[in-house]
Structures are given as C-alpha cells and as structure tokens.
Computed example of a mutant assay.
Amino acid sequence: MTIGPPSSSTASSARSGIWLRDVWVDLGPVTLARAAVTLRDGRLITKGEALDVLAELGAPQEVIADIRARRYGPERPVSWVWRLRRAWLARTFVRAGIDRTLAGA
C-alpha cells in the first residue's frame, strides 16, 4: 500500500475504473486542454474550443470525435468494447498530458 500522493498525475486519473464513465472521458481531456491554454497563453477557453486544442495536444482523434458527438450530437449507444478502449485512450492521454503540461509551465 502506498501512503501519500502519487508521484505523477493525479490520484483520480490513477483509478482506471472511473474512466469507463462518460463524464470522465469528456471532462478529463477537455479540462487538460483548457488548463494547457491557460498556462501557456494566460487566457480561458470554452469547452468547445478545448475540443480543437485537444488535437494540437495529440489526443486520439477517435476520443475527440466521441466527446464531440456526445456533446453536440444525438445520444447513441456505446458498446462495452469501445467503452473499455475509450477509457484506456482517454486515461493514458490525460495522465501523460498532465505531466507534459506541468513540465512546460
């Protein structure tokens, strides 16, 4: 058992099960993009603008498309296989992105 905060990223991103939920897949990458722009440029951007920034940060295109579809498109069913893949892609991107963003700050 580890005592204290994790050595990198955040405690929430370390718990893989939470990434199966749409809210984490949506808000994790979007929040990272918004934070990266704020730290880099000193300005705030909307969640919609953050979707465009995600591509610049190297987020997986299929995750960006999934977030965009959920936010702006009709509701659609999500297969368990895609939910697992999407969770892994989003979590991996956010964990690495936190470290990259803070290193560049």
Rank of each mutant, 00 (worst) to 15 (best):
R95V: 11
A87E: 12
G4A: 13
R15A: 12
A14Q: 15
W80T: 14
R34W: 02
A55V: 12
A69G: 12
G28I: 04
I18N: 04
R15M: 09
A69R: 14
E62P: 00
G97A: 06
E75N: 08
A103P: 02
W19L: 05
G42H: 07
I98S: 05
E62W: 04
L102P: 02
R83T: 09
R68W: 00
G28W: 03
L89M: 13
T31F: 08
W19Q: 04
G73M: 06
Y72Q: 10
A96T: 08
R83Q: 14
A55L: 10
M1Y: 10
A90S: 15
S9E: 05
K47F: 02
S13E: 13
R86F: 03
R95M: 11
S7T: 11
A103K: 11
G4L: 12
T2K: 15
T31S: 15
P5G: 08
V25E: 01
D99Q: 09
R71M: 10
P6R: 12
V78I: 15
I3G: 06
R40Y: 05
R76Y: 05
S79Y: 07
V78T: 13
P74C: 02
R86W: 04
L51S: 00
I67V: 12
L51G: 00
P5M: 13
R91Y: 05
Q61T: 12
T31V: 07
A55P: 01
S8D: 08
A103D: 15
R68N: 01
S13R: 03
R83I: 03
A50G: 04
L51V: 01
R91L: 04
R68G: 00
W80P: 06
T46K: 07
R100E: 13
R76L: 08
T38A: 11
P6D: 03
W24I: 10
T2P: 05
L39E: 06
D26Y: 10
P29T: 03
F93G: 01
I3S: 12
I64T: 02
T31D: 15
L54T: 01
D41I: 04
A59D: 00
R40A: 13
W24F: 15
S7F: 07
I98A: 06
I64N: 00
V63E: 00
A59G: 03
V53A: 05
P6H: 05
Y72M: 06
S7L: 12
A59L: 03
A90L: 04
G28T: 05
L102R: 10
Q61E: 14
A87Y: 11
A90E: 02
F93P: 00
V81N: 09
P6N: 10
Q61K: 11
I18M: 08
I45K: 04
T10Q: 06
V25I: 15
G97K: 02
D66L: 02
D41G: 02
V78M: 05
G42V: 08
T46H: 06
E62C: 05
R91I: 04
L39F: 11
V30A: 03
A59Y: 00
R83E: 13
E49M: 05
P77H: 09
D26Q: 11
L51E: 00
D22Y: 08
T92D: 14
I18L: 13
R21Q: 14
R85H: 09
E62K: 10
S79G: 13
G58P: 03
R83G: 02
G48A: 15
A50L: 03
Q61Y: 00
V30S: 02
L20V: 05
D66F: 06
G48H: 07
P60G: 02
V25S: 03
T38M: 12
R100H: 11
R86A: 11
D41F: 03
R76D: 05
A36Q: 08
A105K: 01
